[in-house]
Amino acid sequence: MVRVQSGNPQAYEMLFSRHSGSLFGYLRRRTGQDELAADLFQETWLKVHRFSGSWRPDQAFKPWLYGVALNTARDAGRKSQRRVSTVMLEHDRPQAPQAHAQRLTLEQAIEALPENLKDAFLLGAVHGMDHREIATQLDISPANARARISRARAFLRDWLHKRGGAK
């Protein structure tokens, strides 16, 4: 990231390559929409470029990146209009049928999570941020972050149980 701040395009592309799939996964699950997630993804990376100077070397890059993405997604949620041109959407993720069905069910459960639980769950359980990092992103206490993840897991278990995808 230091090299990105100094204007190194290769360093930027390296960061982009390393975090793109995960970031898109986060945005896709948070929004539940392919096109909106693509828009937010593009806007997030533009912000990373524009405001790379706001990153400090004592910060981990990933939480900073997800903070930018979260803020971008929140802003989009406050608006009803689309802001970024779209790209063609074609997913191709070959999977065994059973695993695919299992995944779809879980994705539906995640999509049904209340927003406050979803953010904590995605950032913590799926994307590996610790409670302190989640707390910073969501402006809550670390204990609250932990509690939200736990409540999200309980919600998912219940949701899957009621729909026959019990675990």
């Binding site: 799939g21 693509a38 790209v87 063609m88 074609e90 799926v126 590996g128």
Partner: peptide, 14 residues
């Protein structure tokens, strides 16, 4: 699991 493949063209466009 965390990663989802990008839609075709999104990486290039970005």
């Amino acid at each position: 699991f965390a990663s989802i493949p990008l839609p075709v063209g999104l990486a290039q466009a970005t």
